[in-house]
Computed example of a mutant assay.
Amino acid sequence: MDPQTEGHTGLGDWTPEALGAGRVLPVVSAPEAVLSRDGAEVDPIADETVRLAADLVATMRVSPGCVGLAAPQVGVGARVFAVDVTGHAKAVTVHGTFVLCNARVVEASRWKVGREGCMSVPDLTGDVKRASRLVVEGALPGSGQVVRLTTDGFEARALQHEIDHCAGLLFLDRVAGAHAIYQRKVYL
Score class of each variant (00 low, 15 high):
124 L>E: 14
76 V>P: 01
111 W>D: 07
109 S>V: 04
112 K>A: 12
89 A>W: 15
72 P>K: 02
114 G>R: 00
122 P>Q: 09
124 L>G: 01
78 A>F: 03
95 H>Q: 13
106 V>P: 03
82 A>V: 13
124 L>D: 04
101 C>M: 09
93 T>F: 09
86 T>M: 11
120 S>H: 01
76 V>H: 06
75 G>I: 06
93 T>M: 13
90 K>R: 15
113 V>Q: 12
90 K>Q: 13
120 S>V: 05
128 V>Y: 04
117 G>I: 08
83 V>I: 15
88 H>L: 05
81 F>A: 06
77 G>Y: 02
90 K>H: 14
75 G>F: 11
75 G>N: 04
100 L>V: 05
110 R>E: 13
95 H>C: 05
128 V>M: 09
81 F>N: 00
94 V>C: 14
80 V>F: 12
78 A>Y: 01
94 V>G: 02
83 V>K: 01
94 V>F: 12
97 T>G: 12
117 G>V: 06
88 H>A: 11
78 A>H: 05
83 V>H: 00
115 R>P: 01
89 A>K: 10
77 G>A: 15
125 T>G: 03
96 G>E: 08
89 A>V: 14
128 V>H: 04
87 G>C: 12
73 Q>W: 09
77 G>E: 15
79 R>S: 10
101 C>A: 15
125 T>E: 15
128 V>R: 01
101 C>N: 00
81 F>D: 00
120 S>K: 02
109 S>Y: 07
106 V>T: 13
86 T>V: 09
84 D>C: 03
91 A>Q: 03
96 G>I: 10
107 E>D: 13
116 E>D: 12
104 R>I: 09
106 V>Y: 10
100 L>A: 05
90 K>D: 13
85 V>Q: 03
99 V>T: 01
119 M>A: 14
74 V>W: 07
118 C>I: 06
119 M>E: 14
118 C>F: 06
114 G>L: 12
94 V>S: 14
113 V>M: 10
84 D>G: 01
87 G>E: 14
84 D>T: 02
103 A>F: 10
112 K>T: 12
79 R>K: 15
77 G>R: 05
104 R>E: 15
110 R>D: 13
125 T>H: 04
119 M>L: 14
86 T>K: 08
91 A>Y: 05
89 A>M: 13
75 G>E: 11
84 D>P: 00
87 G>K: 01
120 S>P: 04
110 R>F: 10
96 G>P: 03
72 P>C: 11
108 A>N: 03
87 G>V: 09
108 A>R: 06
122 P>A: 08
127 D>R: 11
120 S>R: 03
103 A>H: 02
120 S>G: 05
74 V>S: 01
92 V>T: 13
128 V>W: 05
95 H>Y: 12
110 R>N: 11
74 V>M: 09
103 A>Q: 02
76 V>C: 11
113 V>R: 14
110 R>Y: 09
